[in-house]
């Protein structure tokens, strides 16, 4: 039982780590600020969710679990808002988005 939990937690952490890394690579590789926002979105959704859910499986039933899930909810609510604010500000402040 304990083994299954730690294996599942490890899987989530691995998925979260991989997507965080891919998102960061995207931030460096993408050609302009709008496309970079898409890459940052990967880190903010599946990257954060993977890492936090993996840690939540380690926490067991406690106040810690509630706080970890609350943190995930905050991240998933606030990051799109910040992302949209950034996209809007960039649209007003810059020329049109980069096209192929």
């Amino acid at each position: 039982m304990i083994d299954i939990m730690s294996i599942a937690s490890g899987m989530f952490l691995l998925v979260g780590s991989v997507f965080t890394l891919i998102g960061s690579i995207g931030i460096v590789r993408m050609p302009d600020v709008f496309t970079r926002l898409h890459a940052a979105g990967i880190t903010d959704t599946l990257g954060a969710a993977g890492v936090l859910l993996g840690l939540a499986l380690k926490a067991g039933f406690s106040l810690l679990l509630v706080k970890l899930l609350l943190m995930l909810v905050f991240l998933l609510l606030l990051n799109p808002t910040a992302c949209h604010a950034l996209a809007r500000a960039a649209l007003h402040g810059l020329r049109r988005p980069w096209m192929d």
């Binding site: 898409h38 979105g41 959704t45 998933l76 808002t81 996209a87």
Partner: peptide, 15 residues
């Protein structure tokens, strides 16, 4: 709706 679009990577709400 706008937040769902932004949350999905690959699409961002501009306005």
């Amino acid at each position: 709706y706008a937040n769902s679009i932004t949350l999905t990577p690959g699409t961002i709400t501009l306005e």
